[in-house]
Amino acid sequence: MKNFSIVVLLLSAIIWGCDKSSSTATSGGKQVAGRIVYVNTDTLLNQYDYYKDVVKASENKRYRLEADIANKARNFQNKVAFFQQKAQQGGLTQEQGQTAQAQLQQEEQSIMAYRDKAAQDLAKEEAKKTEDILNNIQAFLKDFNAGDKYDMVIGYSKGGGVLYAKEDLDITKSVLEGLNKKYAEDKKSGKVKADTTSAPKK
Rank of each mutant, 00 (worst) to 15 (best):
K191C: 00
K193L: 12
Y164M: 01
L176H: 06
G161Q: 01
K182V: 09
K182I: 08
F140H: 02
D168E: 13
L169P: 06
A194F: 09
I133R: 12
K193P: 00
N135C: 07
T130G: 15
L141D: 09
V162E: 00
D143C: 08
S157D: 11
L179V: 11
A127S: 11
Q138L: 10
G161I: 10
K124H: 00
V192W: 01
G160P: 01
I137R: 05
E185H: 07
K149F: 05
D151P: 00
K191G: 05
S174K: 14
G190F: 13
N136C: 13
L176M: 00
K182F: 04
E125I: 08
I154N: 13
K191F: 14
A123W: 03
D132A: 13
E185A: 10
L163I: 04
K142C: 10
D148E: 09
D186G: 12
V162C: 11
Q138S: 14
K173V: 02
I154F: 03
K128E: 08
N180I: 08
A127Q: 13
I133N: 06
G155E: 11
D148K: 10
K124V: 05
S157Q: 13
Y164V: 11
E167D: 15
E185Q: 09
K128M: 07
Y156K: 04
K191V: 10
D151G: 14
E131S: 12
D168A: 04
Y150F: 15
G155K: 04
A127V: 01
I133K: 11
D195W: 03
E126N: 06
F140T: 09
D151A: 10
I171G: 05
A165Y: 03
S157I: 02
N136Q: 13
K142R: 15
A194L: 10
N136P: 01
L163W: 07
A146D: 00
K188Y: 09
M152R: 14
D148F: 03
I133P: 04
K173P: 05
L179K: 08
D132T: 08
A194V: 15
S189V: 14
F144N: 02
A184R: 14
K128Y: 01
